[in-house]
Amino acid sequence: MKKYIYIIAVLITFNIAKAQEIRYVNADNGLFLRDNPSQDSKRIDKLAYGTTLEITERTNLKLDVKDDNNIVSGEWVKVTCKDDIYNNRSGYVFNGFLTENKIEKRFTVGFDDFTLEFENLNAEIIGDEQVSTHSNNTVDAILEMGETLEGKTIRVRHHSKYKSIKVFQRHENSISIQAEGPHCDLIDWKHFYSAWAPLKASKKTGTFETITYSNKAQNKFINVDISEFKNAVKEHCGDVWYNMIKDDKKINKGASTIGISKIYFKVIFTTMYDENIEKIVAFNVPMGC
């Protein structure tokens, strides 16, 4: 009996030793996946910040890499990509830019000349990245319920040399009719649009900080005829919702509320030839939450 207990203990110890060694890409600009443990070897892919990896082999081949004014020491390791986007690709990476701590991924939108990254943001692109309901220069996205764009850090990863990068933000307010839980949003009716506001850039990190909105900004709206408003509710929402506001004298009272329904970010990328490339990302904000 003791012999069997010993064998089981050995097997448990062996399985623990063979447990997955999970790491996350901590290189701000991404990390190259190579076909061999050498800086001269072929690049298989560039792994995005936060990518989940499993270390499957340690080569003991040491390497020192200069990162700005710092020296990062580590070794080449063989890994398998655990994120679906990379289809379990395997290859070698420098582990000086890996961490054991799970990293929140960035929401990214890629254009030909640059990539826009939002840190710690849960959102989803609507349809193809290059297809827009507005214009060829706009990408539509939607925030997950309960998510916010306030106080976020934006990075613009340039794919070519440039003279300047500027980022602007504006928001759209819409009317929502609120019940005890359900709500009807007049997102296809009238809106208030703020002016484009330039985002402050950090010279040290090259990042931009998003705007935090006051209650006053969130409640701004254009002047509307109250009868026209009631007709719009009846047409878009139905009699149940109309009955909730039919006796109201003005909007944003009683069951009707004003809130942010979209937030836009515009990037103006000026090339070395003074060509201005303008792209917009429009985030749909769930209302009534």
Rank of each mutant, 00 (worst) to 15 (best):
G30R: 06
G30S: 08
G30H: 11
G30N: 09
L31R: 07
F32C: 03
F32G: 03
F32I: 01
L33Y: 09
L33E: 05
L33S: 08
R34W: 03
S38D: 13
S38W: 08
S41T: 02
I44P: 00
I44Q: 09
K46A: 04
K46R: 13
L47V: 07
Y49R: 07
L53R: 03
I55L: 00
R58I: 01
T59E: 00
T59K: 02
T59Y: 02
T59P: 01
N60Y: 02
N60Q: 04
N60S: 08
L61T: 01
K62F: 07
V65P: 00
V65Q: 13
K66V: 15
K66P: 05
N69C: 04
N70S: 12
S73L: 06
S73N: 10
S73P: 01
G74Y: 10
V77S: 04
V77D: 03
V77A: 04
K78Q: 14
K78G: 11
V79T: 12
T80Q: 13
T80I: 15
T80E: 15
T80D: 04
D83A: 04
D83R: 01
I85V: 14
Y86C: 09
N87C: 03
N88K: 14
N88P: 04
R89C: 05
R89H: 09
R89A: 13
V93P: 10
V93I: 14
V93M: 12
V93R: 11
G96W: 04
T99E: 03
E100H: 05
N101L: 09
K102W: 03
K102C: 03
E104I: 09
K105A: 05
R106V: 02
F107D: 06
F107V: 07
T108C: 11
G110D: 15
D113E: 15
T115P: 02
T115G: 07
E117Q: 11
F118L: 12
E119M: 02
N120R: 11
N122T: 01
N122Y: 14
N122R: 14
A123Y: 12
E124L: 08
I126M: 14
